[in-house]
Simulated assay, not measured.
Amino acid sequence: MNRDTTVQDDVISSESVFGAPCWVSLTARDEAAAEDYYHAVFGWKFRSVALGDRFRIAYANDVPVAGISAVASMWQMAVAWTPYFAVSSADEAVARGQERGGTTAVGPIAFPPGRAALLADRDGAVFGIWEGRLISGWESWRRAAPAFVRLHTRDAFDAAMFYGEVLEWASPKPGCCEVHYEADEVVLRSEGEIVARIHSGAVEAAPDPTIRPHWQIHFAVPDVEACVGAARAHGGTVVRVGTSHTETPPTEAVLRDPDGAQFTVTSRKNR
């Protein structure tokens, strides 16, 4: 795989990194307001795509890092960040998910240069799958924005079984993701690097949706404190700063944008 961060690695396909998270997307109510907020917090710039005015791509240092879709109200979807996992075949992955008790909300449908579907696992956590050429080169994408994604769920082992079968983790295929148990979490590695974690503790019937099973995006940033300050100044909410009360400066913070979409910023030093 090309380790240069230029556009040369944009030719990588989902089959090359199957099973690994390869993209994240935000469903928002107001695209312009979302752009203003995430530009302030992350410094992202935005460009239009061929899918229409409601879809935009966020760039960090000219690397595509995320999508924003102003369709939450139109499609009656929750305002949320959603991870997408690379698959060799969207149709087969959807079928495997349904066979194992998951549900399909959207797709598979064509989103050039690939096909996508939106699913929910057995506990209701929403995730996406992507088949085709990656929107951004996989390694440059991970370096530019997300550090990893974490599933907060009822039973980490049960969830790992579901995702392992749907996304072909730990399969005999060359290049598949490796699954391990580390520090009370199920940890997914691709090419030796942590790309996802699964953590037990979510409650299906909890009144707070952030406690229910869900995927949380962790964005790697150079300065957590600066992101927290920008989030507050631009109408966001700071849910938690730091993993302990003694961190100075903090290495992690959980934030919500003005629409309520939750995400985590984590120091690049802790990647």
Rank of each mutant, 00 (worst) to 15 (best):
R122N: 14
I135G: 11
G137E: 05
W138S: 07
W141F: 06
W141N: 12
R143P: 04
A145Y: 01
A145E: 04
A147Q: 14
V149D: 10
V149T: 08
L151G: 05
R154D: 08
D155M: 07
A156G: 00
D158N: 03
D158M: 10
D158Q: 12
A159W: 03
A159Q: 13
A159M: 02
A160K: 07
M161N: 12
M161W: 14
F162E: 00
F162R: 01
Y163L: 02
G164R: 08
E165R: 11
V166W: 00
V166G: 09
W169S: 04
W169D: 00
S171F: 10
P172T: 01
P172I: 00
K173N: 14
G175A: 14
G175K: 05
G175I: 10
C176E: 08
C177H: 06
V179N: 06
H180E: 15
Y181Q: 13
Y181E: 12
E182S: 10
D184H: 09
E185K: 13
V187M: 12
L188N: 09
L188S: 02
R189V: 13
E191A: 13
G192S: 07
E193V: 08
V195S: 06
R197H: 08
I198E: 04
I198K: 06
A202W: 12
E204I: 14
A205G: 07
P207D: 15
P207L: 09
D208I: 11
T210N: 13
T210D: 14
T210I: 09
I211D: 10
Q216S: 12
Q216H: 09
